[in-house]
Amino acid sequence: MQIFVKTATGKTITLEVEPSDTIENVKAKIQDKEGIPPDQQRLAFAGKQLEDGRTLSDYNIQKESTLHLALR
């Protein structure tokens, strides 16, 4: 499925993911596309910060959802 990640600079990244993917996997995909190390990424959805060990389906993130990326 496709999801979107909006960066602090307003850029939107499109990612191909599975509901079973962990947040860690998603951060690795962002690193592949943007070169941002996962340990510098903070992802949020619906106002909640997402934890590495959880999956997209844990957070009820569905196709075409938009996550927000902040850098630490």
Rank of each mutant, 00 (worst) to 15 (best):
residue 59 Y to P: 00
residue 61 I to M: 03
residue 12 T to A: 06
residue 53 G to E: 09
residue 20 S to C: 05
residue 40 Q to P: 02
residue 33 K to G: 06
residue 46 A to W: 11
residue 46 A to L: 08
residue 62 Q to P: 12
residue 18 E to G: 07
residue 53 G to K: 08
residue 33 K to H: 15
residue 62 Q to F: 12
residue 54 R to A: 15
residue 40 Q to F: 06
residue 15 L to V: 07
residue 65 S to R: 03
residue 22 T to R: 14
residue 24 E to W: 14
residue 63 K to P: 14
residue 17 V to Y: 05
residue 53 G to L: 13
residue 68 H to K: 05
residue 27 K to A: 02
residue 22 T to I: 07
residue 34 E to I: 12
residue 18 E to T: 14
residue 15 L to H: 00
residue 55 T to G: 03
residue 65 S to E: 14
residue 18 E to L: 13
residue 50 L to W: 01
residue 70 A to Y: 09
residue 28 A to S: 14
residue 41 Q to V: 06
residue 36 I to F: 14
residue 70 A to C: 05
residue 15 L to A: 02
residue 57 S to I: 09
residue 44 A to N: 15
residue 46 A to F: 15
residue 5 V to W: 01
residue 19 P to Q: 07
residue 3 I to H: 00
residue 20 S to F: 15
residue 72 R to A: 11
residue 11 K to Y: 14
residue 39 D to R: 13
residue 8 A to S: 09
residue 52 D to S: 09
residue 24 E to K: 09
residue 37 P to D: 07
residue 15 L to C: 03
residue 44 A to L: 14
residue 30 I to C: 02
residue 42 R to I: 15
residue 28 A to K: 13
residue 72 R to D: 10
residue 57 S to G: 12
residue 16 E to R: 11
residue 25 N to T: 12
residue 1 M to S: 03
residue 59 Y to N: 03
residue 18 E to A: 08
residue 2 Q to L: 15
residue 53 G to W: 11
residue 22 T to W: 12
residue 61 I to C: 02
residue 39 D to S: 14
residue 22 T to C: 04
residue 51 E to I: 11
residue 61 I to K: 00
residue 21 D to Q: 06
residue 25 N to D: 09
residue 47 G to L: 04
residue 53 G to Y: 10
residue 1 M to P: 02
residue 22 T to Y: 10
residue 7 T to D: 07
residue 64 E to N: 15
residue 13 I to H: 04
residue 27 K to H: 02
residue 4 F to V: 05
residue 68 H to L: 15
residue 11 K to L: 09
residue 47 G to W: 05
residue 1 M to Q: 03
residue 7 T to W: 14
residue 66 T to E: 15
residue 36 I to A: 04
residue 68 H to M: 13
residue 71 L to M: 08
residue 24 E to T: 06
residue 45 F to R: 03
residue 68 H to A: 06
residue 50 L to H: 00
residue 21 D to K: 02
residue 60 N to M: 08
residue 66 T to L: 13
residue 56 L to A: 02
residue 45 F to K: 03
residue 63 K to H: 08
residue 20 S to G: 11
residue 26 V to I: 15
residue 11 K to H: 15
residue 20 S to V: 12
residue 35 G to N: 07
residue 67 L to D: 01
residue 11 K to Q: 09
residue 36 I to T: 07
residue 6 K to I: 15
residue 35 G to L: 05
residue 5 V to R: 00
residue 24 E to D: 07
residue 11 K to N: 11
residue 35 G to W: 04
residue 47 G to Q: 06
residue 49 Q to T: 11
residue 13 I to G: 01
residue 52 D to Q: 05
residue 8 A to P: 08
residue 70 A to F: 14
residue 34 E to F: 13
residue 57 S to R: 12
residue 45 F to P: 00
residue 34 E to Q: 07
residue 72 R to Q: 10
residue 46 A to Y: 09
residue 54 R to V: 13
residue 38 P to W: 13
residue 42 R to Q: 07
residue 50 L to D: 00
residue 4 F to R: 06
residue 24 E to G: 12
residue 5 V to P: 00
residue 31 Q to G: 09
residue 30 I to N: 01
residue 52 D to C: 04
residue 42 R to N: 11
residue 43 L to S: 00
residue 24 E to R: 15
residue 41 Q to M: 10
residue 50 L to I: 04
residue 61 I to E: 00
residue 35 G to D: 06
residue 44 A to V: 14
residue 69 L to E: 01
residue 31 Q to E: 13
residue 55 T to Y: 08
residue 32 D to H: 11
residue 71 L to W: 12
residue 70 A to D: 06
residue 38 P to L: 15
residue 5 V to H: 00
residue 6 K to D: 14
residue 25 N to H: 10
residue 67 L to F: 03
residue 27 K to F: 02
residue 21 D to A: 10
residue 17 V to I: 04
residue 45 F to L: 05
residue 66 T to V: 07
residue 59 Y to H: 03
residue 19 P to R: 13
residue 55 T to I: 09
residue 49 Q to V: 15
residue 33 K to C: 04
residue 3 I to M: 04
residue 53 G to I: 11
residue 52 D to N: 10
residue 70 A to Q: 15
residue 47 G to M: 04
residue 33 K to F: 09
residue 36 I to Q: 03
residue 45 F to E: 02
residue 18 E to M: 09
residue 71 L to K: 10
residue 21 D to I: 06
residue 45 F to Q: 03
residue 41 Q to G: 03
residue 1 M to K: 02
residue 60 N to W: 05
residue 64 E to I: 03
residue 37 P to F: 12
residue 63 K to I: 07
residue 19 P to W: 09
residue 15 L to W: 01
residue 10 G to Q: 06
residue 71 L to I: 08
residue 7 T to F: 12
residue 37 P to G: 06
residue 44 A to Q: 15
residue 50 L to M: 06
residue 41 Q to C: 04
